[in-house]
Simulated assay, not measured.
Amino acid sequence: MKKIFTVCAILSGLLFFAQEAGKAGELLKNEVSKKEMESSESRKLDSRNNNSGNSSGFRKPNNQNSQNRRPANPNYQWNSNNGYAEVFVRIPEQGYFSVELADQMISNNSGKYRFFDLPSGRVPISIYDNGFLVYRTTLNVRNNSRLVLDFFTNEGLYLLDSYPLQNNYYGFNNWNDVWNNPYGNSGNIGNINYPNVMDNQTFQQFMTTMKKDAWFDDKKIAFINQQGRHAMFTSEQISVLVKDLSFDKNRVALAKSLFSKCVDKQKYFIVGDVLDFESNRRELMDFISNS
């Protein structure tokens, strides 16, 4: 009986924190006009290369008139240095989609589209469903960073987060974790090997630096939110951070803000235990229930 109860509790926890389309990230505006979507001629994927104009600044394939003619003096780019960035797009729906980003295009039915060696700046992105244009917008790509996005045909394109790239460290153990983490689903429930989470030594250094540089609650909260933007925490680590504050109202505010950064939300009740007042513990639990 105890085993059955435990299994039911785990399954209910997984359902409670399950992902939902349009519930995470920043929605990026669809720039495809109604006329484009209704026009079969402009919607066709193959027609994208027939346009003579190209004001985007990105390379386009040669048109039919020049396919059989090689340039006498080709322009080589031996040391092109426009920056380096990555963009990861996931389409969790079943179907055959194509994603065009700058001068790169990926088509498959796996739902994962990973673009490397991208220049920094404003980069156009277009999404096709079975060859028909359904979404277009512009991404602001930064050098040495990775943008992670989710696309839903009924909801739109969502920018989940931006991660710094340093020393070719990808910061995850599983490809799915790249997209699952912003929803709070690390994919490693029951396993302490969470991606992007601070190890004990790094967390101790984090605490030492915070106590040295920030003396008051407002400074500590600002330090945690700034330095921990691209890190994940365990419930135990968050409870330590929350407990270090002086006033209970500030503890509640920090506990709420760090809930989305927690990798083991099923244990978040230990964060509420460090609050002094029962009313604040109820406030935190109500916040979690509605998140």
Rank of each mutant, 00 (worst) to 15 (best):
R70D: 08
N65R: 09
N68V: 02
R43H: 04
K29G: 04
M37G: 00
N63Q: 02
G13K: 00
I10G: 04
N63M: 02
K34Q: 12
A18T: 08
N73D: 05
N63C: 04
P74R: 06
E20C: 04
R69G: 00
R69W: 05
K60S: 02
F5E: 11
V7M: 00
E38C: 03
Y76E: 12
K23F: 09
A9E: 06
F58W: 10
S33A: 12
S56D: 12
N54A: 09
N49L: 03
N30H: 12
W78R: 14
E26G: 01
G53N: 13
D46G: 10
E20V: 08
A85V: 10
N81L: 13
Q64W: 03
Q67I: 11
N30V: 14
P74Q: 06
R70S: 13
N73F: 08
C8D: 03
L14Q: 08
G57M: 06
I10H: 00
E38D: 13
L11D: 02
N49R: 05
R48F: 10
N81Q: 14
S39E: 07
A18F: 05
N81I: 14
N54T: 11
V87F: 07
R48N: 08
K34L: 10
L14A: 07
V87P: 04
N68L: 12
E41P: 00
L15V: 06
S66L: 06
N79D: 15
Y84K: 15
N81D: 15
P71K: 09
E26I: 11
S47H: 12
S47G: 08
E38W: 03
N82R: 15
N62Q: 04
K35M: 11
E86K: 13
N75C: 11
G22H: 12
G22S: 13
N50D: 08
F17W: 08
A21C: 11
F58A: 12
S12Y: 09
N49D: 15
N81K: 15
D46F: 10
S56L: 09
S80W: 13
I4P: 00
Y76H: 14
G53D: 14
K23H: 10
N75G: 10
L28G: 04
K44M: 09
A9G: 00
L11R: 05
S80P: 03
D46Q: 09
S55M: 12
E41T: 00
I4Q: 11
S42A: 04
G25S: 02
S39F: 00
L15P: 00
L15Q: 02
N65G: 13
N30Q: 12
F16I: 05
G25Q: 08
F17Y: 09
F17V: 02
E26L: 11
S12W: 09
Q77F: 15
A21L: 02
L45Q: 01
S66E: 05
E36D: 15
S80T: 14
G25I: 04
N65F: 07
A9R: 07
R70K: 14
